[in-house]
Nucleic acid binder design. Structure first.
Lengths: 195, 195
DNA sequence: CCTACCGATCGGTAGG
DNA sequence: CCTACCGATCGGTAGG
């Protein structure tokens, strides 16, 4: 039951802020607009939060956390590299699709964070990068992937396709994250060229 | 000779605005900051421009134009689909790489444009989409690409990789747009899987 | 959660 | 291109 009436006020603020920040941008959203959408006055927000930047930090942190929780458990699993790639792309795209607003804020506004929060996000980016590089390396070593692949370029190719979904995915459309992940993975694994 | 001292003032304003908008975001950049970097007072800017939004419109329009000029001439050329794909990706990535600031503004701030400018950008996006879908369709019909490809998904795969370069390309790095385009195209065409 | 208010800063203009 | 200024709005606070 999304948006149940008993949802804590802080959750409501987080959700509305995610939507407004993603639609208009962080700096272009005023605290009065945010308060208005929640049916309260501007100053009343500060009974629940510490400040505008805290909202941004929360949104970005939660997004990072969701990516971590989705991908990290895959590291230990003993799957063939092609299956693991398909599964990782599916999970990655699911996080984006299920959190289109926070994902947009995550990709657009992380540069505007305070130095500490900025460093944390940069650290997360590196973690995800490493995850995909490891996946590619393992695939090469196990003989599932071509031996002449450049690990860095390959992981960038994968990251491009899964991250870019935040720009075009529509929840009301016909494509599910499963469809997208399977379609992209199949093309990436087998190539476009006719045999 | 970039940034020659005789560069028209309007060009200088355009360049500095692109950089500031891409680094801090459109709304977070004040006209006084912009003026300061150009060695003038805030009000003096309005001797050269009509307003802040005009700057954004100019940056986005010029970026759209560069994509158009790079890709559109390829439409008529009678190249094999794989060669045409490689060439299109190279040109697309070159535009991004040569205009990292305006490309970032283009991808991040187009939502904040006035309705008319917004519609123009949306129209451009559709044009580029059509370009890549045509390229894929031609490749299927000529037998160069697999017949079971989904045209929409395939063009989204391509667009993801070329557009996402705005987030990670570094002009001071070792990879050239040629390297990136050739590397991505080869992987997309032949696939990651070992034979 | 509201009312009333703070200093700061915003984009933009007038007149030179 | 500068000085001086405009009304509007910003994030945030005090006191209740």
């Amino acid at each position: 039951m999304p948006d149940s009436p008993t949802k804590p006020r802080r959750e409501q603020i987080h959700d509305v802020a995610s939507r407004l920040f993603s639609e208009r941008g962080y700096h272009a959203t005023s605290m009065r607009e945010l308060a208005g959408e929640l049916g309260m006055q501007g100053g009343s927000l500060y009974a629940h939060i510490n400040g505008k930047e805290d909202l941004l930090v929360q949104i970005v942190n939660r997004a990072s956390q969701q990516f971590d929780e989705a991908l990290f458990p895959l590291r230990g699993q003993n799957l063939p590299a092609d299956d693991k790639l398909r599964e990782a792309m599916h999970r990655h795209i699911m996080v984006v699709a299920d959190n289109m607003d926070s994902a947009t804020v995550f990709f657009h506004e992380w540069k505007h964070l305070s130095p500490e929060a900025y460093a944390r996000v940069t650290g997360w980016r590196d973690t995800i990068d490493r995850f995909y590089r490891e996946l590619v390396s393992e695939g090469i070593q196990s003989g599932v992937f071509r031996p002449d692949l450049d690990v860095k370029m390959t992981s960038l190719l994968i990251l491009s396709t899964v991250n870019w979904t935040y720009t075009w995915f529509r929840p009301e459309g016909t494509l599910t994250p499963r469809d997208i992940a399977d379609g992209f993975a199949e093309m990436i694994l087998s190539g476009l060229r006719a045999r």
